[in-house]
Design a protein around this nucleic acid. Sequence first.
DNA 1: GCCGTTTTCGGCCCGACTGTTTTCAGTCG
Length: 574
Amino acid sequence: MRNRDVARIFEDVADMLQIKGENIHRVLAYRNAAQVIAELPRDLNAIYADGLLTEIQGIGETLASKIEEMLTTGKLDFYERLSKQVPPSLLAVLRINGVGPKKAKLFWEQLGITTIEALEKAARAGELRELPGMGAKSEQKIIEGIEALARQSDRLPLGVALPIAQEILKDLLTLPEALQGDVAGSLRRYRPTIGDIDLLIMSENAEPIMERFVKRPDAARILGHGPTKSSIELHNGRQVDVRVLPPERYGTGLAYFTGSQAHNIRMRELALGKGLTLNEHAFTATDGSGREILCATEEEVYATLGLPWIPPELREDKGEIEAAQNSILPKLITQADIISDLHMHTTWSDGTRSVREMAEIARSRGLKYIVITDHSRSLGVANGLSIERLMEQQAIIRAVDAEMGPVFRVFHGTEMEIKADGTLDYPDEVLAQLDVVIASLHVSLRQPREQVTQRLINAIANPHVDIIGHPTGQLIPNREPADLDMDAVLEAAQQHDTALEINANPARLDLPAPYARRAAEMGIKITLNTDAHSAEDFDVLPYGIGTARRAWLTADAVINTWPVERFLKWVRDR
DNA sequence: GCCGTTTTCGGCCCGACTGTTTTCAGTCG
């Protein structure tokens, strides 16, 4: 069993316990454990082998023994027993907007409903409105919720959601009443995928903002329309929430709605320790005096708790509170630190621009050096380069470099296939003539764990390979990462001083942040590249920066911030 | 079920909105 399988079972257990009406804190313990496990940067099997399960935040003796049972037997007796009491198919009903555990239980016990299909049939037949606490409106909402569920896919990729959010925000900020606004929620934290879009507006007069928002032409339906909070659903089934806060309370609001929930809970615990409660409006004294502390900025919120401001990308309760308390928060990398791009394509393979054009675009964007890395010969679909064409291309690149240097440099590299049989696509004597070699997996990503891991390690160990491109091969949101033994991959990269890429394309964001953080802690070098195939593709850099910041990376940990001399020395010395 | 410079027991974050209530429960984030 893999981490995600264990996480899924704990998530289901939490749902089943909640439908049964179990103690909510016991439910939350399972839900929290599921979330923590889903984001672990290590294989549970390895953690278990080291005897460190209870070291995981939120895992005590009971959950550790349940994890052990799953890892060793492949199933969980507790889950099987619960399944006999609460039909597993009922859990899908909880995904309907407006249906929680209480209503699910009601439908099940009163009408024997255990599936979404049965629920829809009952709703359309007008049977739900007869139930206690239900009415015609609730019944209609459930029908709409089921229709919305059918429209939406899973979570929305960051690269799709952020432009939508920015467009809506920009529109609302055209109103004179809107003084300022921010994208909040998981988008502000640059999570690779998001559930819904959260926007925050600073204003003394919320009403016109709420009005304009719910009347947007792309609103498929209005989910809520209150005086300071409204929600709409877009035609793609995606929910957008807008909240309005007055200027003097904007800081607490922005902190609150940026989350994560786990980070917020820690913040409120710290506040309680100081005799204050914290919500989106203010700190309030718990001594009954009703005294409030208002915060117009996030800096004031953190300062009230005795902390420096914590960047949104770190707010996952993954050690950032402790780091802030001890004044050891990292100075995170910013886009301004990036002076190179080591991975891009041209018309020689599947890009849309020439070597010269890519170089000029890169230079105009402020970069100091780039590496041209077209695909290698076996990747026929991408017009991969034969050895002859590779050498022809080298002459062109040398000429462009000579013309544009020495302030701006162009180097010759390749994005070379790691072939299905584990061999590399060019012989060593060819690789030796290139400035930089990226090795990537594009084919046979679904091989068994041992096989696909060994392919990657073979590439890492080759002395000519400098960088592993998009290491896990994941495509967001649809293709799972290859089933890699990441412990072994990271150890190999550390041993051979092979850099790992964070590919900034929002469909990749690969290496994922949790692994990138671990890699950097192990001293493995990280490179942050756009993998550009066109002029516009350079625009994806912020997504890569966000991922690097989520990985706690400083500028120094990322090769692309290094002056060209340091970069060349690294390539030559290793 | 977890967890502890308040605690090994008794806490565990909190408000907006909706629809059904006639004072509040359920859902959501």
